[in-house]
Amino acid sequence: MKRAERLLDLLALLLNTRRPVPFSEIREAFPEDYGDCSEEAALRKFERDKADLTDLGIPLEYQAGDELSDEGYLIRRERYALPAVKLAPEELAMFFLAGVAALHLEASPFHDDLLLALNKISWAAGSREDAGRDFALPRSLGRVPQEGNPRLQEHLGALRRAIVARKSVTLSYHGFWRDEVSQRRVDPYGLVLRRGAWHLVAYCHTRRDIRVFLLERIRGLSVNPLKPKTPDFEFPEGLKLSERVAREPWEIRSHPPVRARIRFEPPVAEAAVAEFGHRACQVEQDGESRILELEVTSLDGLVPTVLWYRGRATPLSPPELCERVQAAWRRIGEEHA
């Protein structure tokens, strides 16, 4: 029996039973594949097939037996199939539009997967009775050429495979603050795209903490080649990748949180309040001016934001922020003198 056919039959066997299936029964069900060799050789062959199914995302697991239950292999149906998501035609159209826009992202590692998903959505939408005469999605999308940084494309592809296989990665990383390249062994948890830049969220064995790495600063990487079918780590329960990546430069985690107070003068005062929104811990009114208090983990990252308001924003505290903004204004004055 061909390998693909054997994997499909093995999947069908385990899905069509409610109890764990011992290897002895699996061997009897596939006499041409697992029955014409020694038990040790058959088990090795089955382990390779099991690893292939796991790589495809099939939740195949082994259950140890006890007095009340049998031992064997099984696929839990609640983990194998996700419940159907019902979207209104308008919601489906917006979802499709967002996906098409994502296809044009530079070096997206999920391009092929997204293209396949969008084509499935378009074909399913065409058969809906509630879509209406004016509702239509393209019946087929072609591959969008991926242009841009070849090194970024290579790194994104390698990291995507490492994340799926849960394999550790060694990075050559150019740090921003120390301006030097260092070697980091990390457990990659996921990739996040924020404001056009790709970030890697990973556990850093050097820092012994979860850190965020900007892909543009990765000079080279290598995935652990040992035991490629065996995961090196588990994804932390409850971890939300998007919450780990700073939305603003002053949210980059370069030091413990400090409170910064900035006075905004009219006519930008109200606009600044709206711009910072919920990130402002406190807003005080001082005549037509507004004083915002922020929790900051990168004072250096806050400096460009203050400068952007062109003299309409004045830092009040901490002293380190005031000094850095004054130094930045002096440098600007010297460069344009």
Results as ranks from 00 to 15, higher is better:
residue 176 F to K: 13
residue 335 E to L: 02
residue 54 T to Q: 13
residue 137 L to F: 08
residue 63 Q to C: 04
residue 76 R to K: 11
residue 231 P to G: 00
residue 208 R to I: 02
residue 63 Q to V: 05
residue 28 E to S: 15
residue 224 N to Y: 14
residue 153 Q to C: 06
residue 329 W to T: 11
residue 329 W to K: 12
residue 38 S to H: 10
residue 30 F to I: 03
residue 70 D to S: 05
residue 22 P to Q: 03
residue 72 G to Q: 02
residue 328 A to R: 05
residue 69 S to E: 07
residue 154 E to M: 05
residue 244 R to Y: 11
residue 130 D to W: 08
residue 121 I to F: 06
residue 265 E to Q: 14
residue 19 R to N: 05
residue 222 S to H: 15
residue 321 L to P: 05
residue 185 R to D: 08
residue 30 F to E: 01
residue 30 F to K: 01
residue 81 A to W: 15
residue 252 I to K: 10
residue 269 A to R: 00
residue 288 E to N: 07
residue 124 A to L: 07
residue 136 A to Y: 11
residue 313 A to S: 08
residue 232 D to Q: 02
residue 319 P to S: 10
residue 154 E to D: 08
residue 276 F to D: 06
residue 333 G to L: 09
residue 312 R to E: 05
residue 283 V to M: 15
residue 253 R to N: 03
residue 124 A to S: 09
residue 86 K to S: 13
residue 293 E to S: 12
residue 203 Y to D: 01
residue 287 G to V: 06
residue 77 R to F: 05
residue 200 L to Q: 02
residue 140 S to K: 13
residue 211 R to C: 01
residue 102 A to C: 09
residue 191 L to K: 06
residue 335 E to T: 02
residue 303 V to Y: 10
residue 287 G to S: 07
residue 292 L to K: 03
residue 160 R to S: 14
residue 13 L to Y: 00
residue 151 R to H: 12
residue 31 P to L: 04
residue 8 L to G: 13
residue 313 A to R: 04
residue 212 V to R: 01
residue 256 P to Q: 01
residue 20 P to E: 09
residue 91 E to V: 10
residue 212 V to N: 01
residue 96 F to S: 05
residue 108 S to L: 06
residue 10 L to D: 07
residue 52 D to A: 06
residue 231 P to M: 01
residue 250 W to G: 02
residue 35 G to A: 04
residue 113 D to S: 15
residue 298 S to E: 05
residue 123 W to E: 09
residue 223 V to Q: 11
residue 191 L to F: 08
residue 232 D to I: 02
residue 268 V to G: 05
residue 104 H to N: 07
residue 53 L to W: 06
residue 2 K to Y: 10
residue 234 E to D: 06
residue 4 A to E: 13
residue 89 P to D: 14
residue 250 W to D: 02
residue 240 K to N: 12
residue 98 A to R: 07
residue 169 V to D: 01
residue 307 L to D: 00
residue 4 A to F: 13
residue 273 V to G: 04
residue 164 V to D: 11
residue 336 H to N: 03
residue 294 L to F: 10
residue 231 P to C: 00
residue 51 A to K: 06
residue 231 P to V: 00
residue 300 D to Q: 07
residue 156 L to I: 03
residue 185 R to T: 06
residue 247 R to P: 03
residue 139 R to Y: 13
residue 268 V to W: 11
